[in-house]
Write a protein that binds this DNA or RNA. Structure first.
Lengths: 293, 293
DNA sequence: TTGTAAGCGTTATCAC
DNA sequence: GTGATAACGCTTACAA
């Protein structure tokens, strides 16, 4: 920066003002041009560590994604964040809650902000922090259930994991809400734990279709079904949620719903940066119809 | 740090010396103790940004994992890195090559080192940088092929992806080497692209078993097999490599080989830190026998 | 309109 | 043995 200042015959302060479009400064266009060119020719890159020291935080945003189902939704949400943050000159780091050194790295970075997605979802004021993702979720679950209803199913179960994860519990609630809105009987929970008795029991209870919280849970249902000689969609229709890449590899290939999480990512980024959310309107959820439902 | 110095009645420099065990300094035990206690009581944490500015690089190591097959091996390698780096007070960040903002973040961090795993594998001197992982790989492929040989197979094909990825090309070479070492005929490549003709062709050519480069490729083979009414292991035995979590969900469940990448991660970290590799001896590769081979 | 200088929290080089 | 002090590269209040 000193070199740029010298090369353009101004002081370091002026260089900083020009390069950061500092508001409240009135610098003639000629000077700005000179500084810009010099910076360009010298290949000047701001030293982000020095900047972070000065500003008290780096220009990096961290997304805590530990415990979230990995798949199309998450990567797409990330892609959306990435676009907007990248455009604003911010960096994005995704943490899957791996281990000590990962935590160490995150704290060492002094991020400008950290988006703790699971926590945000559990909290009361989602929309401010996730671009409306969670709040729109019931609508997406409607898409999932409507697919089943359109195929004549009314007695549906919801495939849930064995442990209790707050995030997935929330999702389960959304499925129930969606079912209510469609006037369906309350969906029975179908715990996916490898026990073949579970789906058999559901079948006996009159269930004809399963809406899974995630694709991997749907795959789990498909697996135990196959183990007991039953098959989808004949004996039990199964629909996933997320469109993981490997859902397509299964036989029967998994029918699932895919949503435009990218738009939510963009919105999240924009509200975080204090920008107007703008035109990023999420596309409606889509059923990816394959074989299982 | 200033506060700690004041509280223990020494200068900032002394605090720094004590807290970093600076070599070549002779500080009385009493002073050290006083400083340590003061730091503790005040809850002093070194400011990593300031340190990075001073040292010219942050205490963070970046692992570039873009393009690598995700699964047990990668996460296990990461876990190994994590342990050793964490113990040494370093942070680890894993980049899956997501997008602009991720790159921006990485450069903003000024990492102490970046391990570009795909590049390292392509390069000539792996062992220095990956803890011997790649060089030991032929041995692991032997485990994969031996499982097939022990079941009476000799005509094996190797499942490869449609595009050409340098990393996967390297892996294919290792399978060929392993086959040669076992005195098997050169394995035919079986391109996994969703075309059911491919495995049928292999069958006609007398192939009785497939060793896949990765689990996902194995799953791809299983899928087209199912599409043509054939099944594993009856018509064609299929063995994967990596033990991805969803391989177990398939029916037939995927037989695969799992290796102790964690140890390689630890070795990588230690050589990177200039430490002796020590006792981290990788456990031998293990076949996870399920149903497909 | 531009320049000067202080300061962010460390670490390292010297005197003492 | 310990303590000033300078530097790392940047931003910004204030002076000119």
């Amino acid at each position: 920066m000193r070199d740029v200042a010298a090369a353009s015959g101004v002081s370091q302060a002026t260089v900083s003002f020009v390069l950061n479009d500092a508001p409240g400064q009135t610098i003639p266009a000629a000077t700005r041009e000179r500084v810009r060119r010099a910076a360009d020719e010298l290949g000047y890159r701001p030293h982000s560590i020095a900047r972070a020291l000065r500003e008290g935080a780096s220009r990096i945003v961290v997304l805590e994604a530990g415990g979230l189902p990995r798949g199309h939704h998450l990567s797409s949400f990330i892609a959306g964040l990435d676009e907007e943050l990248g455009a604003a000159g911010f960096g994005l780091l995704v943490s899957y809650g791996e281990g000590v050194s990962a935590r160490a790295a995150i704290t060492a970075i002094e991020p400008r902000a950290v988006i703790d997605l699971p926590a945000v979802c559990a909290g009361p004021d989602h929309d401010v922090a996730d671009g409306g993702w969670i709040d729109g979720m019931v609508a997406h679950r409607l898409v999932q259930l409507r697919h089943l209803v359109a195929r004549g199913h009314r007695a549906v179960a919801v495939a849930v994991p064995a442990g209790d994860d707050p995030f997935l519990a929330l999702m389960a609630g959304q499925v129930r809400d969606a079912a209510e809105e469609l006037g369906l009987p309350e969906p029975l929970p179908l715990v996916v734990d490898g026990d073949p008795e579970k789906p058999v029991g559901a079948l006996k209870a009159g269930v004809t279709a399963v809406a899974a919280l995630t694709d991997d849970l749907a795959l789990g249902v498909l697996a135990v079904l196959a183990d007991t000689g039953l098959s989808a969609p004949g004996d039990l229709a199964v629909i996933g949620f997320d469109d993981t890449p490997h859902g397509a590899l299964w036989r029967p290939a998994l029918t699932t719903v895919r949503l435009d999480a990218r738009a939510y990512g963009r919105r999240t980024a924009r509200t975080l940066l204090g920008l107007p959310v703008g035109d990023a309107r999420p596309a409606p959820a889509r059923v990816i119809e394959r074989a299982s439902a």
